[in-house]
Design a protein around this nucleic acid. Structure first.
Lengths: 263, 263
DNA sequence: TATTGTATTTCGCAT
DNA sequence: ATGCGAAGTACAATA
């Protein structure tokens, strides 16, 4: 059992400075070793795949050990500015009485420049994380489930292959029906989109051309917008609605341990 | 000019407690009003579109005013766990000598449960940000540029429409060549993919069927993997390589103000 | 609200 | 390293 601030407080190193010059040196020294956290008022510009500029505002900046750079605003899950891991150059300096952070990602030649005119809090976090994220219910899991329950797709379906490669892409499931006709199945975890319909049609056409015989295309998804349903029916493709949330029921009692989770 | 910690330090409110019970009450009170920042050792589970579990590790958690929940680990730009804005329920409690944070997003019925067994730092950040991100060089900008320079696509191209809707999707640019034949153009900011080729072919086929005349399909992108180039040429589609970074040159001197940026 | 398409998509996996 | 497709994609624009 552990309470703040008694335990682990040594993992936090506050950087108190009354001038940006000293602060920039401390930051440069810490970069790559510990997670740098800066809370303050900044503006920033990014230049690479696009150009962007964001004017002054209160934000959180996190510089991770791998060179990831995050700038978070007051709303939303997505950062307002960021730099991917693999920073080649990183510099901290003072310019016009402002703390300037410049990063260059070598691989893509993308730069990001941030200026702070006020800093409310800066500290280093000595963090370690070796936990691996376990995910259950991905598309691969659904395909696995359907392999055990082919009747959900078609009563007479016998699955012969999964992850079958064609010249135009991978097909999730391949099999035959009672008449010996080939069935291919595209599985989606989320609501079907027009793109899914087109993709399936492409697979069917490609295989029909190659094998010279009728191919049945099935699209499996939890829901079908009417536009998509129409497209499928017009193109002699089948829509199979499977409510995954019923098959992989939600856990009503929040799990707290890995054992609970795997249950 | 402003230096930490003199200026703006009042925007930071440290929550010091020697027990999680008191802390959980303070957090509940602050939720939705200020940004909550928690640094500590946690594990978490998510249950919704998928199920996931991540075991103990040192992480940063940020709860934004709009209900966004971020859990960041020591690497990468993406959070290891998160909850989108629109949290319906939020609770802070103590369970097994651990601080427990539970959130339910009403709309999607997705839950996330986080347990802290050690907290290294907790504080509130009173942040305001009204800055709007300005972006230059998006796909829309490229289409606009090509509208002014159609010769880059085809010497005789005359553009008649942009963002043209077809039964199978939107076409970026539509026009005619000197022979009066129809040209459609798909514009991509990034390297072309096989999917882009298929999409273009679909557009062409759909329009040829509808109009009963030959349609020329062009794919514009900064680079083409050979596989894609082959597919296009096999299907009588044209690849136009345009290095956007030369047309929208990078800014060598980092910009610092909005005026500099717009230059 | 539901649908649609873009994205500095990010990320992981296969080649 | 590059190509390729999935993602709890997130998010904005649109109907």
């Amino acid at each position: 059992m552990a309470f703040y601030p008694q335990s682990g407080a040594e993992r936090i190193t506050f950087l108190k400075s009354d001038n940006f010059d000293e602060l920039s040196k401390k930051l440069a020294k810490a970069f790559g070793k510990k997670m740098i956290n800066i809370y303050g008022e900044c503006q920033a510009s990014f230049d690479g795949r696009i150009k962007s500029f964001i004017p002054w505002g209160h934000r959180v900046i996190i510089l991770k050990k791998d060179g990831s750079f995050l700038m978070h605003s007051t709303e939303g899950v997505k950062p307002v500015n960021w730099q991917l891991p693999g920073a080649g150059e990183f510099s901290f300096s003072v310019e016009d009485d402002q703390l300037k952070i410049y990063t260059l990602r070598t691989k893509t030649k993308e730069t990001m420049t941030t200026h702070f005119r006020a800093i409310h809090l800066v500290f280093l976090y000595d963090a370690y994380d070796h936990g691996t994220l376990n995910i259950y219910g991905s598309e691969a899991d659904l395909v696995k489930y359907l392999t055990d329950h082919p009747g959900l797709i078609d009563e007479t379906l016998q699955i012969t292959q999964t992850e079958y490669e064609t010249p135009v892409g991978f097909i999730d499931i391949r099999g035959v029906n009672s008449k010996g006709e080939t069935i291919i199945v595209e599985v989606k975890k989320r609501a079907a989109t027009p793109e899914d319909g087109h993709q399936l049609k492409r697979y069917v056409e490609s295989l029909e051309e190659k094998d010279g015989q009728k191919i049945w295309g099935y699209l499996v998804a939890p829901s079908f917008p009417s536009k998509v349903r129409n497209y499928l029916s017009e193109n002699n493709l089948k829509a199979v609605e499977i409510p995954w949330e019923e098959i992989f029921p939600t856990v009503t009692k929040p799990t707290t341990t890995l054992d609970d989770f795997l249950e």
